[in-house]
Amino acid sequence: MSATLFALVERVHGHVAVLALALLLHPVITLRTRRLLTPWTVRTSELAALLLSGAFAVGWWLYPSYRAEVKPALLADLPRVAASFETKEHLAFCAAALAIAGAVVLRRAGASSEGRKAAWALLVGAWICGVTTGALGVFVASFAQTGW
């Protein structure tokens, strides 16, 4: 992968993740503020889970290039930043897994109050992991600007 393509895909990856996190706020908020479950709450949770998984999949695609081209220099010059990248990867996986679980719980058990509570807890967990991932991503990207 060329450095320019890497930089382009990396930005798309980040923007899709931010969009997913913004969308995830809809079910997180409406599951707490509304007594009844609306179809759009279910749909936005599914779309957010899909987008988060998509962002994770793009990150998966970029990872071999990062490992070969970016990580060695980052590890040599700024080991704490390289460590932050690893933490970001761990939390990104947790965010995607929890978001998928939350969306499935909401779809298949959301008509019951225990199902809605379980979905809310999972989606909030995904959102917290996702926001932490995003913050770490911005931090790492400010040091590792490949392709520029």
Partner: peptide, 21 residues
């Protein structure tokens, strides 16, 4: 398609999310 009331699938999905993490 509306939301369901199946606690078994709900529990299974919750355990997938927590278990995988």
């Amino acid at each position: 398609m509306t939301a369901g009331t199946d606690p078994r699938v709900g529990l299974a999905a919750l355990l997938f999310g927590l278990g995988a993490s």
